[in-house]
Amino acid sequence: MSGETRVLPALAAGEAEVPFTILHWSEAFARDTTWNEHSHPFHELLWNERGASTAVVGSRVWTVTPALGLWMPAGTLHSGSATAGTWCRAGFFGFGAVASLSPTPVAVEITPLLRLLLERLADTGLPPGSRAVTEAMVLDVLTPSPSELLLQMPTSELLRPIADAVRDDPGDQRTLAQWAARLGVSKRTITRAFNAETGTSFARWVAAVRAQHAVTLLTRGWEMEAVAEEVGYRSVSAFGAAFRRTTGLTPGTFRAR
């Protein structure tokens, strides 16, 4: 089954009036779906009921899951993608009615309480008074998460072969020295480029790619042993330790429910 590309407009924050405080949206995708770069006049909280999706702002790539969502401020240009089988959900927050949680995109932990409150707002028959109380409770518990599944992509021609290879195969075992030899530059040159373009080291960047890919597999129901092997670790314990260092969370957080 072929994929689908959806084209949405780029609207400034508050450019279009919206008659809601929080509006629920939900869709399960039968085929791979991508969205062009666009922006909304309202704030958006993205999370998933099932599976993992991505949101891209410039060179930053976030993974959105059932456990970890993403706050997207109104007017922020972003693109996205979801694989077949993913069930995406979102809350749209009126620009004039709700102050942004952050001036830039930020991760949000989808706690059991927050999930229940958001699910309650999906009830179209909810009385106005109950809806207002529930919306107030959502805004009260909605906070940025110290953990996030974020990957800062390098942009230079020098690092592009490395970035493409590791994202295509997160289990790639080539070392910094091997990449330097292949590209005909020194290890120091690659190290400096990674620090300048991604704010982190080559090793930590690879670990972030592996963590994002692992989350996608975990939300699809893969077993921990298979995930660890797929993303280049020799044991589940080594995978778990690297995952916790990278994300601040355990792999079990993202296991399919």
Score class of each variant (00 low, 15 high):
G3D: 14
R6N: 10
V7F: 06
L11C: 05
E17W: 09
F20N: 03
T21D: 04
I22H: 10
L23W: 08
L23E: 11
S26F: 03
F29W: 14
F29N: 06
P41E: 02
F42P: 04
F42I: 05
H43E: 05
N48K: 13
S59W: 04
V61G: 05
W62R: 09
V64Q: 00
T65C: 04
L70V: 10
M72A: 08
P73A: 09
G75N: 06
L77P: 05
G85Y: 05
C88Q: 14
C88W: 03
R89Y: 08
F92D: 04
F92V: 00
A97S: 12
A97K: 14
S102P: 06
T104L: 10
T104M: 06
V106F: 02
T111R: 13
L113Y: 10
L113P: 10
A122D: 08
P127K: 12
P128I: 08
S130A: 15
R131T: 08
A136C: 05
A136M: 10
D140C: 11
D140N: 15
T143Q: 15
P144F: 08
P146E: 02
E148V: 03
Q152Y: 06
P154E: 01
R160D: 10
P161F: 00
P161H: 00
D164W: 09
D168A: 15
P170F: 06
A177I: 03
A180G: 00
A180F: 01
R182E: 12
V185G: 04
I190S: 00
T191W: 03
F194W: 02
F194C: 05
A196Y: 03
E197I: 01
R204V: 05
V206C: 14
V206M: 08
Q212G: 12
L218D: 02
T219K: 07
V227L: 05
Y233G: 03
F239Y: 00
G240W: 04
G240T: 11
A241E: 15
T247P: 02
G252Q: 11
